[in-house]
Amino acid sequence: MAELTIKDVEKIALLARLHLTAEELADYQGKLTAVLGYVAQLDELDLEGVPPTAHAVFQQNVMRPDVINSVLPNEEALANAQAKMDGQFAIQAVLDE
């Protein structure tokens, strides 16, 4: 990918659930294109057969006993919310009519 278009940037912003102004869209078009140009250096590498690494310090099947530990009281869990109703987080209606 050589250069992102404004349409590409709009699509990424929608996927990322970010509201961007026209000015921001243009700014990120330039910045993202520059970074993608830089990271294109990885194309030089032969990665055939190389396994991917997700975590450098590998640990597998980390388990703990399935017991209930102390949990936050409802009031504390909701304390930082902008809107609440009946002891729950309140959001805007998803379905209309």
Binding site: V9, A13, R17, L18, H19, L20, Y28, L32, L36
Partner: peptide
Amino acid sequence: RGLFGPEAKNRIMLGTF
């Protein structure tokens, strides 16, 4: 999410892409 600052937005955008 527009409240994120410019660099956070930049990195979210790159990561999403």
